[in-house]
Amino acid sequence: MKLEAFLIPEDVPSAKSALKRLGEKGFAMAGGTSLHFLAVSGKTAVDLSRLDLSGIRRKGGVFHVGATTTLDELMRDQGPGWVLDQVARHTSTQQIRNVSTLGGNLVRVFPWNDFPVALLALDATLCIEGVREKAYPADVYFDGQPFRLFEAGHLLTRVEVPALKRHQGFAYHKEVRLNAGFSLMTAAARVAVKAGRIAEVRLAAGAAISLPARLPRVEAALEGRPAGDARIEEAVATGASGLAWKGKEGMSDAYAAHLGRVVLADVLAAALRQAEGA
């Protein structure tokens, strides 16, 4: 991205005011690492990285994660029920993780973004602050490009991530060609088991489909089944059929579909094992 100017506001109200004033010419940035992929010019960058929008605090059963929290901080163990370290660890390289932020992964969703898939599976809530704060469940936030929810002067301020409870399991997998490469297929699952049965499944995929999304037909095929006879592959085969898989980097669409089924089954199996306490 070619910048016309930059502003370094001292506080959140100044940042919001600057973005509102700039309108289409304003551009909120924190780490700025994704700007490299945006072929636009003439924008004024509003640097959010020095505002009080970072940090991770646990309130009851929910982690409140500031939007400008770096991926490096997300990689660190935050205590029982914290799972986003699994995602952060596999995102890019340490130099990127040291400046890239959670918010930067969520405001503009590129197909390869890692965190939207995880947050869909975790039933997270994303908070946008304009004049007032509005909280969006992940299912709503990611039902399209998120910037549709923002007006000039609005900021993503934090993400509320439920801590994983007992009898819940979470798994995340990203298929890449190179260790630090963009994802070719991403999947995340959260599974809850009660009284030996699968009580709840939240399954999301990304990268090989146009936007991160949940797979409700797979979820429905699994919920209620005995945990010991989940028939995961069967559920994935029928529930994920009909999705518009898209291969990348020389991969055919048909192979992407096959890879998708394998990865989805893997994350479901891993999450189920954790939920059962295996």
Partner: peptide, 24 residues
């Protein structure tokens, strides 16, 4: 922002100088 040959330390953290704008 892939090879690391441009790495510098910013506030104690390794970063890619080729990706960061100077104003950062």
């Amino acid at each position: 922002g892939s090879c690391g040959a441009c790495t510098v330390i910013l506030d104690g953290r390794a970063v890619y100088a080729c990706l960061l704008y100077a104003f950062q």
